[in-house]
Design a protein around this nucleic acid. Structure first.
Lengths: 191, 191
DNA sequence: TCTTTTCTGAAACGATCATTTCAATATAAG
DNA sequence: CTTATATTGAAATGATCGTTTCAGAAAAGA
């Protein structure tokens, strides 16, 4: 037979993801990408495909990481409200420590209007997060940990707020502002 | 003396704005731009400047339009709550009828991390909106039209939600979802 | 070891990028 | 009308874009 593929695809995609994350889809050149991936363009095209396909893989990798996060917290033994608090803490941390914001949100605004595959992956990602939060909120309400309301509305509210926090942090770089908003969300829920 | 500038700069910038709005900063080529502006690249460089400068002008034009909107509603004779309702209606309409989302938000996520001038303009824009809403909310609270709360927090909440609505609409294209969220906001305020 | 298959690296591909050049053109002042 | 100055359109600039080509290196089976 013949030679075997030498480079680690998973690692290479992870490295490409970092480049897309920082520069955006259009802002990342194939030179940037292949340099970070430490492979030759020919290797990229022989294995993964073109730039668009690589981006799809990167977005999938990013959202898969989130799916894992959700799975972990969904199986948690903590109380719903405690899980929710942890989730909000992580959300705040994500916003105020990420230099380059959130890859999924950036991709939504940059290319989801033109690229159906990307849009579909991001939609699935949001849906998964939606189901997780809705179920969490429903449980917390049932157990009387938070005020009873339409859990779907609250979920939409949380997801919207998270996106807004990212934009706010890009413009103002004010961690306290984000933390205050998160605290307010929690206060409103338990009030 | 000499020849006078022939093309209408204001109109040309407006046309360029549409291109940036649709394709993003990096996605818009100078061919796209000058074709839409109906001018020659040399005219662009002799009057406005390079691509970045043109983008700055476009973003300024966009945010100036918003400033005008704010000024109109700030001087309105309606009650604070009525103005707020109108504002929310406009926000929903903006989200669910705009094919290309919001130029300011897209620019924030695409370039505000790297371009200080753009970031500064967008920050000023957000600050203006912030002051308008805060004052509106404070008045509405004073007059007992809505529940008394920290008006700054509610303002942050509203602005965050607006950004999130845009992302939601890009992914789901569900107008009813946006309308429900807006109605929920209002319900929560007056409750 | 030899053959066969496949991957890798360097180079080159045409296309398009943002930007500049410059001669022809148009206008206002003298 | 002439002259001086500025704008315009067409073309070309070098750089960079995403992608492909291809010879040579590498590995597995015979």
């Amino acid at each position: 037979m013949a030679r075997i593929v030498e480079f680690d695809q998973e690692l290479a995609v992870r490295r490409a993801m970092e480049v897309f994350w920082e520069k955006g889809y259009k802002g990342a050149s194939l030179r940037d990408l292949t340099k970070a991936m430490q492979i030759n363009p020919s290797s990229l095209y022989n294995t993964i495909g073109d730039k668009q396909e690589l981006f799809v893989r990167c977005i999938r990798r990013y959202t898969d990481d989130r799916k894992e996060y959700i799975a972990q917290h969904a199986a948690s033994s903590r109380s719903p409200l405690q899980t929710l608090k942890l989730f909000l803490d992580d959300a705040v941390t994500n916003v105020i420590t990420g230099e380059r914001s959130c890859l999924a949100i950036k991709a939504a605004f940059e290319v989801a209007g033109e690229d159906e595959r990307i849009k579909s992956i991001l939609k699935d990602d949001e849906d998964a997060m939606y189901r997780f939060l809705r179920s969490l909120l429903a449980k917390a309400m049932k157990q009387g940990e938070i005020r009873k309301e339409d859990p779907e509305l609250i979920t939409d509210y949380l997801l919207s707020a998270y996106t807004g926090w990212h934009e706010s942090f890009i413009l103002h770089r004010d961690p306290v502002k984000i933390q205050r908003m998160a605290r307010y969300v929690l206060k409103q829920l338990s009030r």
